[in-house]
Amino acid sequence: MEANSSLSITHLIFNASFLVQVVMLFLLGLSVVSWTIIFAKSSSYKNARIKADDFEEKFWSGIDLNNLYNDCIKRSSELLGLEVIFSAGFKEFVRLINSGPADQEVVMDGTYRQMKVSQSREMENLEGHLSTLATIGSISPYIGLFGTVWGIMHAFIALAAVKNATLSMVAPPIAEALIATAMGLFAAIPAVMFYNRFVTKVEALENRYINFMDEFATILNRRLVRVRSEMNQKNEVNTVNSQNQSYPHANSTVHSTAQDDSASHLRSRLSQNQSSTDRVTYHTPGVEGDRLRSSVRNTNFH
């Protein structure tokens, strides 16, 4: 009974050498930090995934993007992930459009850059403290091994002064030292396991954010093409009208008729395009979005 009591874990810890006890206490602190990060990150990634699911469902429902943007502005302090990327990109797109005539490539490049900045900041938040988790997983076994080596060395030095060493004399100090290795593994194994799991989740969210940026940029680019086409057709109509006014009515019957026909045709085209544009103004393609997303993802995969 006395031997079992003397070899209990509690007894061995409290009777270990001072340095080994310091190593054990340090490893216990690392384990607490590790599990705190694990619980916090698990909740954070789960929340990010749920937020992304909800936003994508709303985004691809065919909602008016102006209304979606206004809704995001009202919840500016609660935005996360895709909502932040969408708000930044749409705000920059509208700002560039309203700033005056600009090349289409310039508008889309500025919009995508702004989304990229927001995406990078979101990734920084997701990757926060992962390096700490990786460090704990890497160094904990070596710290525990250091405590073990020191404890065994201290035990053998103490036994050197004894003429007749027995197993009962050697076992307790060696057991004390080995507890440090066990605590090092206790801190390292969960840290390494959850670090690898979290890295996989971060990569999945990053790919999801990048795919959304490409999809959203495609929608905005298509909208910008329609706006440019509409503006060009208006300019053509204005040019035709000015040419009609420059010809004398009495001496240009043929030209006037031809110009009137041309203007009428352009107005008809403009009216059709205008009504079509009004129906899809800043709207996501809804069901069409599924095909668009599949196409973009296949392109990115290859």
Results as ranks from 00 to 15, higher is better:
residue 149 V to W: 06
residue 172 P to A: 04
residue 166 T to N: 12
residue 156 F to K: 10
residue 184 G to H: 05
residue 162 V to E: 12
residue 171 A to G: 12
residue 156 F to G: 06
residue 164 N to V: 14
residue 174 I to H: 13
residue 150 W to Q: 10
residue 157 I to R: 14
residue 179 I to H: 00
residue 154 H to M: 14
residue 182 A to G: 08
residue 161 A to V: 13
residue 164 N to R: 14
residue 182 A to F: 10
residue 167 L to F: 15
residue 181 T to W: 02
residue 184 G to R: 09
residue 160 A to E: 00
residue 178 L to N: 10
residue 187 A to H: 00
residue 162 V to D: 00
residue 182 A to L: 08
residue 171 A to T: 13
residue 182 A to P: 05
residue 163 K to S: 05
residue 153 M to T: 13
residue 179 I to K: 04
residue 151 G to S: 01
residue 163 K to P: 02
residue 182 A to H: 07
residue 155 A to N: 04
residue 176 E to C: 04
residue 171 A to I: 11
residue 149 V to S: 07
residue 173 P to V: 03
residue 151 G to T: 01
residue 147 G to A: 00
residue 187 A to P: 04
residue 155 A to W: 03
residue 183 M to A: 00
residue 173 P to R: 05
residue 181 T to F: 02
residue 156 F to W: 09
residue 179 I to L: 03
residue 172 P to E: 08
residue 157 I to D: 00
residue 152 I to W: 12
residue 185 L to S: 08
residue 156 F to H: 10
residue 184 G to W: 03
residue 187 A to V: 00
residue 154 H to C: 12
residue 178 L to R: 08
residue 158 A to Q: 08
residue 178 L to S: 09
residue 146 F to W: 09
residue 162 V to Q: 13
residue 151 G to N: 00
residue 154 H to A: 14
residue 173 P to W: 11
residue 156 F to R: 01
residue 163 K to C: 07
residue 186 F to D: 03
residue 168 S to G: 15
residue 164 N to A: 14
residue 148 T to R: 06
residue 161 A to C: 04
residue 169 M to C: 11
residue 147 G to S: 03
residue 177 A to C: 03
residue 171 A to Y: 07
residue 147 G to T: 04
residue 152 I to F: 03
residue 147 G to W: 02
residue 164 N to Q: 14
residue 153 M to I: 13
